[in-house]
């Protein structure tokens, strides 16, 4: 328990560091967000308006850096991430709130499905090494090396078009109002299938490969031979002895993958114009939308940290050797 508390303390420290870096980095890169906004408005602004913009974005030149920093921290605690430029005058928190569910829904679900499918398949393939199952390995190696956005482009080129079941872009039919009725959910699923498929295909192969290799390694461990010698049923040897141990490295890989859900599939979202966080990040970069960038980076950092925490907890649960006795 004290181990977990220690980890928790470490994570809090990391969060603070991330938040602080997040505050300073945009202030160090060249370019002035307010100037960018003024250019966008073609200079049609009074000097009063410009000044109030600076105050609004927390870039008040009259304030010291330290007081800017503390008011930034205070705003963060209130969940206030500032104003977005691109979606002006929506607050960043609202913009992210719009994009996050789509990303988590699409990438989150496919990552989880991909992990479970791939790990299960890898366990079986690794267990049956030396049989036909090995012929799967070159295929998965090939598939896992295909960048998924390229796969997405190919899928769009081949499968979408007039009269096709698969829409080429968006997350739901234009004109539908997001709510929980069947028409909307159906449309969401229909739009999600193709991007989900491309992510799934490439991620599953990765999991198959790593799980298969661990299975082969673990299968030659002594305790697996002992389990055979004990006359245990094949299934039990495979699941409780071989797969159970082979799983451990994959679990930490899975936690990392969870952390990259938010930021990792930017390209898929761009390819499919999927209105998730990745697409927003892309737009924010294009528009020099610093507050939105900061907000998204913060979310990405926090999700990676959260995933790491999950990995720690999962490891504690799965591997007794990591538990320290009090």
């Amino acid at each position: 328990m004290s181990y977990l508390l220690k980890r928790l303390g470490f994570y809090l420290l990391t969060v603070w560091a991330a938040v602080t870096i997040n505050f300073f980095v945009p202030r160090m890169i060249p370019g002035d967000p307010v100037q960018a906004l003024i250019t966008k408005q073609r200079g049609q602004m009074t000097s009063e308006a410009v000044r109030s913009l600076y105050v609004l974005f927390g870039l008040d030149k009259d304030e010291s850096l330290a007081s800017q920093y503390f008011s930034y921290l205070g705003q963060l605690l209130r969940g206030d991430l500032g104003m977005s430029f691109t979606f002006f005058p929506s607050p960043v928190a609202d913009v992210i709130g719009d994009g996050l569910p789509w990303t988590v829904g699409l990438v989150g679900i496919t990552t989880v499905i991909g992990f479970f499918l791939g790990t299960a398949a890898g366990a079986v393939v690794g267990w049956r090494r030396g049989t036909w199952a090995d012929s799967l390995i070159p295929v998965t190696t090939f598939v896992s090396s295909i960048p998924y956005f390229w796969l997405g482009l190919v899928a769009i080129a081949l499968l979408t078009g007039p009269g096709s079941f698969f829409p080429a872009s968006g997350a739901y039919e234009i004109g539908l109002v997001p709510n929980w009725d069947w028409q909307f959910i159906g449309s969401t699923v229909q739009h999600g299938l193709l991007p989900a498929f491309t992510i799934l295909v490439s991620s599953v192969s990765g999991w198959i490969l790593s799980m298969r290799n661990m299975m082969v390694t673990v299968s030659s461990d002594d305790y697996v031979t002992v389990a055979h010698a004990k006359g245990l049923p094949e299934r039990r040897v495979m699941l409780a002895y071989a797969a159970r141990n082979a799983l451990l490295p994959n679990v930490s890989g899975f936690a990392l993958a969870l952390g990259f859900i938010v930021g990792g599939t930017l390209l898929v979202e761009i390819v499919f114009s999927y209105p998730g966080l990745g697409l927003q990040l892309f737009q924010a970069v294009g528009a020099k939308d610093y507050p939105l960038l900061q907000g998204i980076f913060l979310i990405i950092t926090l999700s990676v940290l959260l995933a790491n925490l999950l990995a720690d907890v999962a490891y504690l649960a799965l591997d007794p050797r990591t538990r320290r006795e009090a």
Binding site: D221, V226, Y241, R244, D319, P320
Partner: peptide
């Protein structure tokens, strides 16, 4: 050392 499954009691 290696004859026992490390993750089971």
């Amino acid at each position: 050392i290696n004859s026992l499954n490390p993750v089971q009691r």
